[in-house]
Amino acid sequence: MLTCEIYYAQKNKNGEEVCGDTIKLKKTEDKTVVSVSDGLGSGIKASILSTLTASMATTMVLHDVPISEVFSSIISTLPTCKVRGISYATLATCYVNHANGKCHIFEYDFPVVLFFRDNKLVELKKIEHIVQGRKIYESRIEVNPGDTIFLMTDGVSQAGMGTPRFPFGFGLENIIQELRNLLINKVDLRSITNHLVRLAEALDRGTKGDDATVCAVKIRERRNITIMVGPPEKKENDKIVVEKLMNSEGKKVICGGTTSQIVEKILGKQVEIDFSSISEVSPPIGYMEGVDLVTEGIITLSQVFRYYEDQDSTLGVGAQKLIDMLDESDVITFLVGRAINPAHQNPLFTHDISLKFRLIHDISQILEKRGKVVKIEYY
């Protein structure tokens, strides 16, 4: 199963407080949709127009609305500049199906869409659609791990326009050459997007310049993690949950002392305690055959939450390892037991809400904001 890593960087037009370009991203376990829109002009007005355009496209494409309806809705919603006779926002939307690798890229007056495979530019065949008299171009390709798609607004391609060195702007060919060199030298995509925006900023010195946005979509294999937290409410579900953990794809974590005892009993295996991992701030971690990490429960989860919230950077070995695993994962599944430990009750809440449930809920929300797909199953 595939997934997409998204990196982007932006700059505002000189003198503007907001960027007139907008990026919108929606990701599920099965698909990724990312849209980049450039509003006409700059500032607040451009930002509102591009936000509306990118939001509509991303949401509708994610829900499999036919592309003619997507652009009919966008074109009907957005006005047309009476002076220039052009749309008030350009758009590029990239859709990737994680299961079959099918990728569709839709362009509406968008300046730069580039597809690289093995550090080489691949020419995309474009299908023309006419929607309400406007030309919409669609590219279809089956993506592989390692492929990269770049979407850039004209603030990059036209950077430096009017200067002696680039009187007509930096240009598409220079962008391609720059990207080819960076990819061959294995520069990471976060650095590439930042570099191109800084380059546009440098080229625009002494000119009015424009908003500039660079978005990179990297295709790779998906990374999963499943975390069993707490014993099930009913003992007869112990075996079901343990089997679900062990049969899950990707990394496996057991969180909680009682939880690890249940897994030991069901599998007939022992947790090997790493006594060298004991510290003043947390109990030791453990290891079990077929499991990547065994940790204590509430203390570890509390440290993870406080770390993500920038409340406390003090971490035990278990919390640090768990955070590292969460950060590198794309799909995170919590198998949460409903059995409540009275010692973990928070007196500020009603009797049936445990600290464990609250922590998992809050950590999940943080991870989702970071672009992770999070699933919580209760037993």
Rank of each mutant, 00 (worst) to 15 (best):
I192E: 10
H195E: 10
V197D: 00
V197F: 08
V197L: 10
V197P: 02
R198Y: 10
R198C: 03
L199K: 03
L199T: 01
E201T: 13
A202Y: 11
A202I: 13
L203S: 04
D204R: 10
G206Q: 12
T207V: 07
K208M: 08
D210C: 13
A212L: 10
V217S: 03
K218T: 11
R220K: 13
R220M: 11
E221C: 14
R223C: 00
R223V: 00
N224H: 15
I225T: 02
T226W: 09
I227E: 01
M228Y: 04
V229R: 01
G230C: 03
P231L: 01
P231N: 04
P231W: 01
P232M: 05
E233K: 15
K234V: 03
E236T: 07
N237V: 06
K239N: 02
K239A: 07
K239L: 04
I240R: 02
I240P: 04
V241Y: 10
V242C: 08
V242F: 03
S248L: 10
K252G: 05
V253D: 09
C255T: 11
C255D: 13
G256T: 06
G257Y: 01
G257F: 03
T258S: 11
T259G: 01
V263A: 06
K265E: 10
L267V: 01
K269R: 13
E272Y: 05
E272P: 03
I273H: 01
I273S: 03
I273P: 00
D274P: 09
D274Y: 05
D274L: 04
F275H: 14
S277F: 09
I278R: 04
V281Y: 09
S282E: 09
P284Q: 07
I285F: 02
I285Y: 05
G286W: 11
Y287H: 13
E289V: 12
E289N: 14
V291I: 15
V291Q: 12
D292C: 02
T295F: 03
T295C: 14
T295I: 14
E296H: 07
E296C: 10
E296V: 12
L301V: 11
S302M: 15
S302T: 15
V304A: 06
R306Y: 06
Y307W: 15
Y308T: 05
E309R: 13
D310Y: 13
D310Q: 12
Q311P: 05
Q311A: 07
S313I: 04
L315G: 09
A319W: 03
A319C: 12
A319M: 05
K321A: 14
K321I: 07
L322P: 15
L322G: 12
I323C: 05
L326G: 02
L326H: 00
D327I: 09
E328C: 06
S329H: 01
S329E: 09
D330Y: 08
D330W: 07
V331T: 13
V331Y: 13
I332G: 06
I332H: 07
I332Q: 12
T333W: 04
F334K: 08
L335Y: 12
L335A: 04
V336F: 02
G337W: 00
R338Q: 06
